[in-house]
C-alpha cells in the first residue's frame, strides 16, 4: 500500500508541454497512408465506368454515366478505400486529411465538362 504513487507522473506532466493541442489553431498532420477522405482528383481521366460505386460496401458513391457525374455521400462513406483500389484510371485518391465537418446532409457532386473537341486534322 502506497500513497501518492501518481505524484511523480503528475509533476512530470505539469513541467512538460501538454499532450493536447488547441485544436483549430493548432492542427495535427496525419501520418502518411492515413485514410482521411476519398476525393475525385482527376475528373478528366474518369471514364464513369461505375466500378467504384459497385464495389462500395455502403453505396456511398453514385456514378451517372449519361450525365458524366460522380457523386459521393460523405456521411455514408466508411473510408475503406475499396473505390480507390479498384479505379482503373486512378482518378480517385485517398487523402490523408479528413473531410471538414458539415452541418447539413449533402452530396458532393463532380460533373465532367465536355472536353474540347480534338483539333481537326489539317
Amino acid at each position: 500500500m502506497a500513497h501518492l504513487t501518481i505524484s511523480k507522473l503528475l509533476a512530470k506532466s505539469a513541467a512538460k508541454k501538454p499532450a493536447t493541442r488547441r485544436y483549430p489553431a493548432e492542427k495535427r498532420t496525419p501520418p502518411k497512408g492515413a485514410r482521411g477522405r476519398v476525393t475525385m482528383k482527376q475528373l478528366e481521366t474518369c471514364v464513369f465506368c461505375g466500378v467504384c460505386g459497385k464495389k462500395c460496401p455502403t453505396r456511398a458513391i453514385a456514378v451517372k454515366r449519361a450525365e458524366k457525374t460522380w457523386e459521393i455521400d460523405r456521411l455514408k462513406c466508411i473510408l475503406c478505400g475499396e473505390c480507390v483500389e479498384v479505379c482503373p484510371k486512378d482518378s480517385l485518391t485517398m487523402e490523408e486529411e479528413h473531410a471538414a465537418a458539415f452541418v447539413a446532409k449533402r452530396i458532393e457532386s463532380h460533373v465532367q465538362r465536355p472536353q474540347p473537341a480534338p483539333p481537326d486534322p489539317p
Binding site: 496525419p30 501520418p31 502518411k32 497512408g33 492515413a34 485514410r35 478505400g81
Partner: peptide
C-alpha cells in the same frame, strides 16, 4: 493510424489476408 491507415477502425482485414 501509421500502420493501418485508420485510428480505431483499422479496415485492413479482408477475406484472404490483409489489405496492406
Amino acid at each position: 493510424e501509421e500502420t493501418s491507415g485508420g485510428r480505431v477502425i483499422f479496415g485492413v482485414c479482408k477475406v484472404g489476408g490483409v489489405r496492406r
